[in-house]
Design a protein around this nucleic acid. Structure first.
Lengths: 336, 336
DNA sequence: GAAAAAATCCGAAACGTTTCGGATGATTGG
DNA sequence: CCAATCATCCGAAACGTTTCGGATTTTTTC
């Protein structure tokens, strides 16, 4: 573990000069710089980022705080896609990523701020947090630069990336109405997700504009799991047997709904059309293929990292980035 | 950002005493300790891990080096499951995880050792590395404690976790022979994965013991992608039209094979049985459900973290951990 | 050729912690 | 009551960097 001091001694200069030479300062002679760089290579030197961080008060790391990083959630590859995006952008920069999770009991005790302060991350990307999570306010009010994924809130040091969930759900409404459906239901996620609220609003509004009313008894809530989707869908059909189309606020719930309905003898899409949201990997493989709103999950992560690092490096203002979505028509939906 | 110094001043003691009090040393009076702890809380103190790392020469972080962390590989949730396991164990300890990837061009320039040295990780878990990766030797010979996932090599500072791929493949052989198949083929992964070699050996040996010979023209190589699996399977059937069962060295390839065969009019499992390996999420959802060897991927990650942290904290010897596997019979295989 | 400017270098402090070696005072043992 | 032990505390060095302010030498300018 050669240090800057070793180089200084070997090259016959001061450590100041070594530091300045290696960091590309202009006030060091080209010859001495060459010599220093050479001996650095010779000694197999690599800088100690910890020492650097200490004096610079910058760790060049960003925290990736994911709430849903538990086994069950591996199903939707949402999480990993976001992570991949974050990682891909970050690896083009000088920043490294350190992984935080909030599900473990151990870290539960620590507050978000403590987590960040202790680990001295320069900023943090937060994913999968619920609107009722105690962390949330701490985050938005806090001093630590952060960007939220899918939570449209901007703070003094907090920006966000998201898709236009309202518009996406709106398109589903248009689409289903366009297919001739008039008796429509919705399986929504739990109320503590912003996406649930937005998707509900968008869907409702687009239907109203087509003179279709989405009354409360046509809305059933799940909690984004497969199983809950099935339950909610069955409930819906029990309350409104005439239903010919169901919009589920997540693919996983949609898949659960399909399974449950099929087991009750419903044919999809002949008897009932199902549309999901997310375009998770599974939706392409399931039978029948699930019609859904595709979001650029990878892009979500990529843009989040971009936004955060821009805030860190260029003192960019916190802002929002909206990534695109698109309706993917597959075989789970048809004309009535 | 209160420091230890602030506490010392406020509590009227030396910084030495503060440090020793906060770290639970015995040579500090219980009353003063209480006072110190109180003022620490009052000042909302949290220790600066960077400063600590610098002096302790321990960063309390482990690197998670994953090669396959690219978009396409999100399909098999192998990577994320391993990561989840690693994360779950690590979060029970004092260690944090920092993410490395090797696919990006930027980090390609840097050697593995540089990566670790610079970021000062105490140890590293390596996943998805190929046997022909230039990193590999560096890793095994290197000074940095590490554990490999699915590469059975032990070094002075390197252990590994894996499943018994030989035994798993053996069981597939027994299973298919037990179903009455005698004309059997195999779609293997590329030769630069240890698992390929092991699975081939195990499968071959178990068939030989049943007097079935797996000649070379009955083995076709893919590269673990869905598409390559389809291609390899078709090749296989072209060369040996009598084939009634194919063992694919990964689920993704098996799924590719099923799709390709179905599109050529083969019925599964009536005309031909398919067995995969990995039990990825998809294999349960695909039609028909894929018979496969399930490995405890999560456990792989969990045990890897456990092993590494044991090596770090208790100077445990590098060793191996084998996690269990199990044949999952679904609908893609049947009696001949 | 002297003063001013530029180029090049360096000493020392600072970042926030841990820890070694010793200091101080109180208690104990004989 | 003196020495030895114990409990409690602290000063200062160390970890490996960056950087401020100044010092020294060389070049330029008139």
């Amino acid at each position: 573990m050669a240090t800057i001091k070793d180089i200084a001694k070997k090259a016959g200069v001061s450590i100041t000069t070594v530091s300045r030479a290696l960091n590309g300062y202009s006030d060091v002679n080209e010859d001495t710089r060459k010599k220093i760089v050479e001996t650095a290579k010779l000694l197999n030197y690599s800088p100690n980022t910890i020492a650097r961080s200490l004096v610079m008060k910058k760790s060049k790391t960003i925290g990736l705080l994911v709430s849903g990083f538990i086994r069950e959630n591996a199903k939707d590859n949402f999480t990993i896609e976001v992570m991949t995006g974050v990682n891909d952008y970050a690896s083009q920069t000088a920043y490294d990523i350190v992984l935080f999770t909030t599900n473990s009991s151990k870290q539960r005790e620590k507050t978000y701020t403590q987590l960040c302060k202790e680990r001295k991350v320069d900023g943090v990307i937060i994913q999968g947090i619920r609107t009722d999570d105690p962390y949330l306010d701490e985050v938005i009010e806090g001093e630590i630069p952060c960007v939220l994924v899918d939570i449209p809130k901007i703070g003094k040091h907090a920006g966000y990336v998201s898709t236009d969930n309202y518009a996406g759900a709106w398109e589903v409404g248009e689409y289903l109405a366009g297919l001739g459906h008039t008796s429509i239901g919705m399986v929504n996620g739990h109320e503590f997700a912003f996406v649930s609220q937005e998707r509900l609003k968008g869907f409702k509004d687009s239907l109203i504009q087509k003179d279709i009313k989405l009354s409360d008894d046509r809305i059933s809530n799940g909690d984004f799991t497969e199983e809950s989707g099935g339950r909610a869908a069955l409930q819906l059909l029990e309350d409104n047997p005439s239903t010919t189309a169901i919009f589920c606020a997540s693919d996983l719930m949609a898949i659960g709904a399909m399974t449950a309905l099929k087991s009750r003898g419903y044919r999809i899409p002949e008897d009932i059309s199902i549309v999901g949201y997310d375009n998770i990997l599974l939706s392409r493989y399931v039978q029948p293929g699930l019609t859904t709103i595709s979001q650029d999950t990878y892009g979500l992560g990529y843009e989040a990292a971009k936004l955060l690092i821009d805030m860190l490096d260029h003192e960019g203002e916190p802002r929002k980035t909206i990534v695109l979505h698109e309706l993917m028509e597959r075989d789970s939906s048809a004309k009535v």
